[in-house]
Design a binder for these strands. Structure first.
Length: 580
RNA sequence: GUACCCAUAGCUCAGCUGGAUAGAGCGUUAGAUUGCGGAUCUAAAGGCCGGAGGUUCGAGUCCUCUUGGGUACGCCA
């Protein structure tokens, strides 16, 4: 909610009360309860207030109320059927707004609604038996973006990762390495560590089809690992290091970072302890075979096993330990788990268990459940080898961007072809992934994502580059505009009014994105700004203009737009490019 | 079988707490360049918002039922 909208709410609320007083009706309205919207067409006005809700109190039609209210207002207010439409003096709004944007710079759009609240965000959570794939990329970009958005809303953020480095699946790649690896290393093979290890995981799958004893051998290895066998532990250490180093390289390339990294191998003990404590408190119960359970039938979550009959821990047990360890490390007020929607049941159970264990903060845990990423050809299936590898995809997009730059003959213009291509690829990827509401399944189309026109990352980046180019040109010939001065009242073109409104709305969008944990609101808003600016500068010369005042004013506006784009890009993990 | 999620233009997606004639992009068709980077812009065609009831002054949005799709319900993670 921008300040000019707030002001108008106040005025309309006042007029409504005045109308009620005239007619001796006992009526009051809080200005925050007033509905505010945009008229369907800009020429109808900038703000609209529907009068439907008041018909009941006033015992007349909304249309009549609108007329009576409008009569109390000035010439900028018209009654249009049941609506009151306001035409805002945008010159006045622009004067303060543009100044504010230029002064606040990268801080414009931030607010204090979360007031220093400590929020932990968990995302990514890779396994150490294979490299990242397209699904992780969605997870990573949502996690990173939501963290930045919450920070912009005034929260204190702690981004955490949880490395899944133990369990039977890890042993499978280790076993295959031991049998077929012949001592190969990332260095000797020239392969990234995560890809090398992932290859052995795939190899295990093939081998286990031929040799029925493979699965049993993997279980034996797990037992050895849990009992601390030195040889297995050493191999585990080595291969985990390879994978984690490989994955961290991918994070670096995709602009993802964490404040803290948790390892399952270090937190699962804690989970086991907590289950034992819960058992003593009779929150859990033991079956005859020794396994430990919780009965959640009263909340329709069935019953769930917490410890195997041999006393070893499970995924859920480990997550209990991790949550408690985290709260001890950093007493968060909220913890957001960015995890695929497949795991909804898991988190319902986890939160319920933590709550029954008596942790008051359990009610502040939140599962940010996001949908699957599919391909135009259909679902990704690891068995059919159609899983899109993260590194491959980034490389492919980078290659496509590079070709595009060359084909436009701009490879001489950009200062670093390789770096620029990579930034375009990243912008394309993140924008495409974030443009869709997190909760929904989506289809990822690589060719569409990297396209330079349409609703895509590169299009937005292009608008940023174009505005930058204009600002550079302005700086070059600044002297020829000397004597001119910024005058917001000159911003009378329809697109200018629209742009000012969009800029004014930006902080509210950041707020809403934070409340709903939904970066797509920001994506949509930035696209709207870019599209409007495209249309605007196409027919309205900014620099090639007789009036020096007008040049300066439009540059002032363009600079503010660029600033908002930059700020929004950051929230979406999209690199900004001054030229491309 | 039970629970949760989704269904809007040929395709990919928007549509904020219910509000004026349901919007974009891609694709299709037709246009615009002595112009700040045409990697652009303009316009047209394209919709029973899966279906049926209900609540409401008003429903793409809320409720019930129904159809179709997805996911979960492991001593896997």
């Amino acid at each position: 909610m921008s300040t000019y909208q707030q002001n108008w709410k106040k005025k309309i609320a006042g007029a409504l009360k005045a109308v009620a007083a005239d007619r001796d009706i006992d009526f009051s309205v809080e200005e925050d309860d007033l509905l505010i919207e945009k008229p369907p067409k800009p020429e109808m006005g900038d703000l609209a207030f529907p009068m439907f809700p008041y018909a009941r109190f006033f015992k007349t039609s909304p249309g009549k109320i609108a007329k009576q209210v409008a009569a109390k207002m000035g010439s900028d207010t018209t009654a249009a059927g049941p609506y009151i439409n306001i035409t805002v003096d945008m010159g006045e709004v622009a004067e303060d707004l543009l100044k504010q944007i230029h002064e606040e710079g990268e801080e414009f759009g931030r607010n204090t609604s979360l007031n220093g609240q400590k929020i932990m965000v968990e995302f990514s959570c890779p396994n150490t038996n294979k490299p990242l794939h397209l699904g992780h990329l969605r997870n990573d970009t949502i996690g990173e973006s939501v963290s930045r958005i919450l920070f912009a809303n005034g929260a204190c953020i702690n981004k955490v990762n949880l490395i899944n480095d133990r369990g039977i699946h890890i042993c499978k790649s280790m076993l295959a390495y031991k049998k077929f690896g012949e001592g190969v290393t990332p260095e000797s093979s020239g392969k990234k560590g995560d890809h090398l290890v992932g290859g052995f995981y795939v190899k295990f799958g093939k081998w286990s089809k031929e040799d029925p004893s493979a699965e049993e051998q993997a279980r034996e290895m797990l037992r050895l690992w849990e009992s601390g066998d030195p040889e297995v532990t050493e191999l585990w250490n080595t291969m985990n290091r390879w994978t984690i180093e490989g994955i961290e390289e991918t994070y670096k390339k995709t602009g993802i970072s964490f404040d803290k990294k948790y390892l399952e191998s270090e937190t699962y003990f804690r989970g086991r302890e907590l289950v034992h404590e819960g058992l003593e408190k009779e929150i859990f119960y033991r079956e005859e075979d020794g396994s430990v359970w919780i009965d959640l039938n009263d909340v329709k979550l069935d019953r769930k096993v917490l410890l195997r009959s041999d006393g070893t821990t499970l995924y859920l047990t480990q997550d209990i330990g991790t949550a408690v360890a985290r709260h001890d490390d950093w007493p968060f007020e909220r913890l957001i788990y960015v995890v695929a929607s497949e795991q909804q049941y898991h988190f319902q159970v986890l939160f319920e268990v933590l709550s029954r264990l008596g942790f008051p903060w359990a009610k502040n845990l939140h599962h940010l459940s996001y949908g699957m990423v599919n391909l135009p050809e259909g679902k990704m299936k690891s068995r059919e080898g159609t899983v899109v590898d993260a590194d491959d995809l980034v490389a492919e997009l980078t290659g496509m961007a590079k070709e595009e730059i060359k084909s436009k003959g701009r490879d001489e213009e950009v200062d670093n072809l390789e770096a620029t291509s990579a930034k375009i690829a990243l912008g394309a990827l993140n924008y495409y992934l974030l443009q869709v509401s997190p909760t929904k399944d989506m289809i990822f189309n690589p060719a569409e994502s990297i396209s330079f026109n349409g609703n895509t990352g590169p299009y937005l980046q292009y608008m940023g580059a174009r505005i930058s180019s204009m600002l550079r040109k302005y700086e070059e010939r600044k002297e020829s505009y000397s004597g001119g001065k910024v005058d917001s009242r000159l911003l009378t073109v329809a697109e200018e009014r629209e742009l000012i409104k969009l800029l004014a709305e930006y902080p509210g969008i950041v707020n809403r994105a934070g409340e709903d944990l939904n970066p797509s609101f920001i994506a949509a808003h930035l696209y709207e700004i870019c599209k409007t600016f495209s249309r605007y500068y196409h027919d309205n010369p900014v620099l090639h203009n007789e009036s020096k005042d007008l040049v300066k004013t439009r540059i002032h506006l363009s600079g503010a737009i660029l600033q908002v784009l930059k700020n929004g890009f950051f929230l979406l993990g999209m690199p900004f490019l001054p030229t491309m």
